[in-house]
Amino acid sequence: MSQYQNIKVIIPARFNSSRLPGKPLLLINNFPIFWHVFQRCIEAGFSSENILLATDHKKIFELAEELNIPVVMTSDKHESGTDRINEVVTNLDLDNDSLVINVQGDEPLIPSQLIKQLALFALENKKFALTTAVTPICEYKDFINPNVVKAILGEGGRAIYFTRSPSPLNRDNSNSLELAYRHIGIYTYRVSDLKEFCSYSESSLEKYEKLEQLRALSNGMPIGACIYNDELPHGIDTQEDYDAVKLLMEV
């Protein structure tokens, strides 16, 4: 698609996940998890030469090459996927106005429509340094769960804050979920904004809530958020997640 010509999709795939070591190499239907993520990006309309797997492990690198997935080796010292992507962008010497999409390497069921929607939203909203996605929270148990990250939206698609707390809270009806949104961990950045983001040290709020996107907000970088209204399958963080997703995909 012509509107995607100046967009790179980068899929970070780190070997040493704290909760599920070696996660990217786990197989579903005889293919590793990252292969399925790559397919979702293809389905979203991106050409394979504009999709890149970024890993810190030789086995992942070699398997990606076997599967004809463009791949680069990165440092194993990065604290976050954003830092890993910044290394890739720097080494590729991408133009400052290029757009980069960070698609997590542990979401084999990520909807291609979500990737497409976010890409178009970013292209149409260049006032934001970063863009991401949210989905409505429909159950109160999710609203009060600190593991479900809430996004508070202002006007015009602007994200005002991200928090693990139940927020925003309706003063007159604490059970209301009308403005409650769950953050989805997919991002776009212009290369110049990615470099700026990675130039900042960890912010106080970021350290406090353990939410990387608060580093951007703490330093005045505007974040936009599009609302994704369809079903959102779970990613793979634990062995239980893997078993559930594998069961779902291998039917």
Rank of each mutant, 00 (worst) to 15 (best):
S112W: 11
I186E: 04
N125T: 05
N96C: 01
P108T: 06
Y161D: 13
A119I: 07
L109I: 04
L109F: 01
Y161A: 05
I144G: 01
H183S: 09
A119H: 00
E107K: 00
R171H: 14
T135A: 10
P146C: 03
T131H: 03
V134Q: 03
N173L: 05
Y189M: 12
I186W: 06
N173P: 04
V149F: 02
L120P: 01
G156R: 06
S98M: 11
L94M: 07
A180C: 14
A180F: 11
N145Y: 13
A129W: 03
L169Y: 06
S192D: 13
S192E: 10
F121L: 01
V149D: 00
V148S: 09
K116L: 11
F162C: 00
L123N: 01
K127M: 13
L92K: 13
V103L: 07
L99K: 07
D142H: 08
L92Y: 15
L123S: 02
S176E: 05
K127Y: 09
T131Q: 00
C138I: 15
S174D: 11
S176Q: 04
Y187S: 09
N147Q: 14
N170Q: 02
L177N: 01
I184H: 06
Y181A: 03
K116P: 06
K127I: 14
I115H: 08
D97H: 13
N173S: 07
E178P: 06
Y189C: 05
A180N: 10
L99G: 04
A151Y: 07
G185N: 09
L130V: 15
F128R: 05
I152L: 07
